[in-house]
Design a protein around this nucleic acid. Structure first.
Lengths: 136, 136
DNA sequence: ACAAACCCTACTAAATCAATAGGGATACTG
DNA sequence: CAGTATCCCTATTGATTTAGTAGGGTTTGT
């Protein structure tokens, strides 16, 4: 299962993706936009920063930005950063070990095929579908 | 991650696989063989029974047996029975939904490719590798 | 100097997981 | 038909993890 912390992280990165190139976004802004407890989000963003996904600007007019283009950040990278491996190596090898490894690989493959730029596009499509534009 | 409960279930089914065709195996026997807390194992085996994977014989000389040939029971079936879906449908559809679905499918595919008979074979191979037989 | 922002450590509350307890029902066996 | 070995059921407890909060500290632009 995907934890709340992890979905918060994904939503935060998606929010930063939307703002890409338009200056930093504060914790408060992200928290309100995505409905995330601000103090919790703070910890998450620091974590992402320490792992090289975001950068922070302190002081007034500060906030967070992505440290790489959203096109080059995959869903899998963020999830692994927040959650660690799905099937952690369980002590010593037994009959299940190779299956867990195969599962881990299959999962990473799926998660690494999607980057945040395409997620942003998808979000826009979903919005257009939900709030149709009736103009000519 | 795979829970302890789930690995206990898998080990129990593997033990029953080894005993296939040679009468029932008691909770105590399985618990000792696989190092599982017996009262906990009891609950797990009842769960597997209610989902049609095992059958129980009560009274003296009783115990548990597989209700289907081990060849036809996949790792995935047992895991789903004990753990439920990996990526549960999170309320309403968002940009991540389709990725979670793809991940779920990829995972099930891997887990369903392995049945317990082949796991038993693999276990035997591992044992031979660990305790080599030097006879001619 | 001040205020707006990020930074750090520690703590608490709630949920889940792991395991245990105490009996009850069933069936073979002598 | 008494006794014992077995599975069956519900509730409770203790440990661990997750989710979130608190209280302060540091940096920076104006």
């Amino acid at each position: 299962m995907i934890s709340k912390k992890c979905t918060y992280a994904l939503k935060a990165v998606l929010a930063l993706t939307r703002r890409e190139g338009s200056g930093p976004m504060t914790i408060q802004q992200i928290a309100e936009l995505q409905d995330i407890p601000p103090r919790f989000l703070e910890a998450i963003l620091r974590d992402l920063k320490q792992n090289g996904f975001t950068e922070s600007i302190r002081g007034k007019e500060g906030g967070y930005v992505l440290s790489r283009p959203a096109r080059e950040i995959s869903l899998g990278e963020i999830i692994r950063c927040v959650e660690g491996p799905w099937f952690s190596p369980s002590g010593d090898a037994d009959v299940f070990t190779t299956v867990w490894e195969e599962a881990e690989n299959a999962l990473n493959k799926v998660m690494d095929e999607t980057d945040f730029q395409s997620l942003l596009r998808k979000e826009d499509e979903l919005r257009r579908a939900a709030v149709p534009d009736y103009s000519i």
